[in-house]
Amino acid sequence: MQTSFNPRSFLVTGASGFVGRALTQHLGIQAGTRVVCAARSHIPCAAPNMTFFQCDDALETQDWRAALDGVEVVVHLAARVHVMRDTAASPADEFRRINVQGSINLARQAADAGIRRFIFISSLKVNGEQTLPGRPFQASDAANPQDPYGTSKHEAEQALLAIGRETGMEIVILRPPLIYGPGVRANFERLMRLVQRGVPLPLGAVHNVRSMVALDNFVDLITLSTWHAQAPGKIFLVSDDHDVSIAQLLRMLASGMKKHIWLIPVPPCLLVALARLAGKSMDANRLLDSLQVDISETKRMLNWQPPHAMQDAINKTVTSFTSKQ
């Protein structure tokens, strides 16, 4: 029977990233903990119990022995992430080299070092790119990745679970959707800029359903998964448990900024046609499609509830964004 334990020493890869910074700070403020922060570029350690480990681009051959010394739990965030305009000669090969072979290399060394638990941060893209009405993704669904990034995450998941069965190291897999919070970039930041500028947006008639997760909620679940007895060997989906349409999200952003927003009710089919003519079909899909997850199993198995309400998390994100303008 699996039992929970009280880990006090952690290795976090990708510690300089959006999630990595928040997670290492959260783990580092807990009394009696030790956190090894692994990243390619140097990052300052915020506390004496945090140490930096510099890794290189070749994660598939990286020697992790020094970083793993004395560690109980690994949280593997480092990855080649999904990019809109990939310039690699073979994106699939690059994703596989870093996300699959790099993860296998770290997990093998972790098992050899006696690491008890290995948390792998995967992606909802393993499930697919969109959901049908009333059919949210579940962790038990068959994988259906649609691009090299999602495929590489799925392949890494399968390899890590196999290593866990072979070595006894406890593997936990988390698949987040879009993560937002202070410092968020990419599409979420673009939406905030549009709301801030007061630009009329033709999205008032869009009634899709999308799941997202606040950074603080995700960090809370990662932390829980480092010790919970029911976590090993499982795949968990995560969200704020409050799904919204793109129109609702824009109104929540506007509320956080205390701004008026003008949403024009243009039929979605017309938006799709215009996007196709402009060569922006993928961008339109991200705005108009539904992408919903069912986290009932996560809540039940881990006795977890997202601790931060979505509007509160959006307000915190907006405050950080506007303070830097």
Rank of each mutant, 00 (worst) to 15 (best):
A214C: 11
F95A: 02
K258N: 08
T13R: 05
R8G: 06
V184H: 03
E166K: 02
D63M: 14
G168E: 12
P182H: 09
F218K: 06
G233D: 08
L250P: 04
S239Y: 03
R116N: 11
F120E: 00
G102E: 10
D240N: 07
S9D: 06
Q146L: 14
C45Q: 07
I104H: 03
D312V: 09
A38M: 03
T87H: 14
N127H: 02
V195N: 05
A159F: 08
Q101P: 00
L277M: 15
L201E: 11
D86G: 09
R300E: 13
R276D: 15
W227F: 05
R40T: 15
N144S: 11
G114N: 02
G32S: 05
E72Q: 10
I173L: 14
R85S: 09
T151L: 12
V293D: 04
V19K: 00
Y180L: 07
L274R: 05
D243G: 00
T51C: 05
Q30F: 05
F137S: 00
T131Q: 01
V219R: 05
A89N: 15
A254I: 09
R96W: 10
H228V: 09
R85G: 03
I171P: 03
V12E: 12
I104F: 03
G32A: 07
C45M: 12
A247P: 10
I98D: 09
L160M: 05
A113L: 00
I246H: 03
P136D: 04
S122D: 08
P268L: 01
N208R: 07
C45P: 00
S211Q: 12
Q25H: 13
A142F: 04
V100R: 08
G20V: 06
L250Q: 06
A15S: 13
L253D: 02
R34K: 13
A66N: 10
A31E: 15
T87C: 11
L203R: 10
H154C: 13
S239E: 06
A39G: 14
P200H: 01
N99K: 08
R21Y: 04
Y149W: 01
D294I: 08
D93F: 00
S211I: 14
M212W: 06
T223S: 11
